[in-house]
Amino acid sequence: MLTLTNVGKTFNKGTVNEKAALRGIDLHLNRGDFVTVIGGNGAGKSTMLNMIAGVHPLDSGTIVLDGHDISRLSEHARAAYLGRVFQDPMRGTAADMQIDENLALAARRGKSRTLRWGITKAERTRYVDELAKLDLGLETRLSDKVGLLSGGQRQALTLLMATLQRPDLLLLDEHTAALDPKTAAKVLELTEQIVSSEGLTTLMVTHNMHDAIRMGNRLIMMADGKIIYDVRGEEKAGLHRADLMRKFEEAAGEEFANDRMLLG
């Protein structure tokens, strides 16, 4: 489904700020895999997702998604295959556009845009149904500007937008980190619901070890631009937070002491 081979990225090469963010990542995901990604700050989790999404050009390696080599495609061209939800609720939606207009943009992801009307009546009916599933009361507010919504509502809407047109791969980059615990739980519940009902292949970065163990069928841990731990199935289900902490200490040593993963 998704195969990363020797994917590398160094930022600010040749300067004092040089930072090797990814050091030859190899990763293979099967269709329907729901993989949680954990690791400390600067471990390369977000960079890995951004490299898959095409935000930065690759330094080395290849990314193959569903048989297509997307390594050299631009960000907007890759969007045809990907659904993305960002950490910042402001980044995933257009604040000055209406809820239905945002959904209409999402419904056209990866399709060529023409001079046909930007949103049709039939679409609006469908959006009412889809929004009702979120259970946030958004189905009656179709023509409200998205800027009026709360962070949690925006994040739930972004999740719906990312999956409105079935993506080959769903990328969730700490998409609940900016939300209060109650809202975060709601968005995670929606995430599980959508991912399992659509059978989506998913990569979810999280700082919460409990969520990382509880959700999905596979867990990978990153440190210093490498994947240091990869566990799936029964073995993953049997994990405890202490196991992950130990694993992390082994790999990262000293660095771990002051990492905010301790708090997760």
Partner: peptide, 12 residues
């Protein structure tokens, strides 16, 4: 409105 979002929605 939002260039990041636009590119994620496949807009060039």
């Amino acid at each position: 409105n939002n260039e990041d979002m636009s590119r994620a929605m496949g807009i060039d």
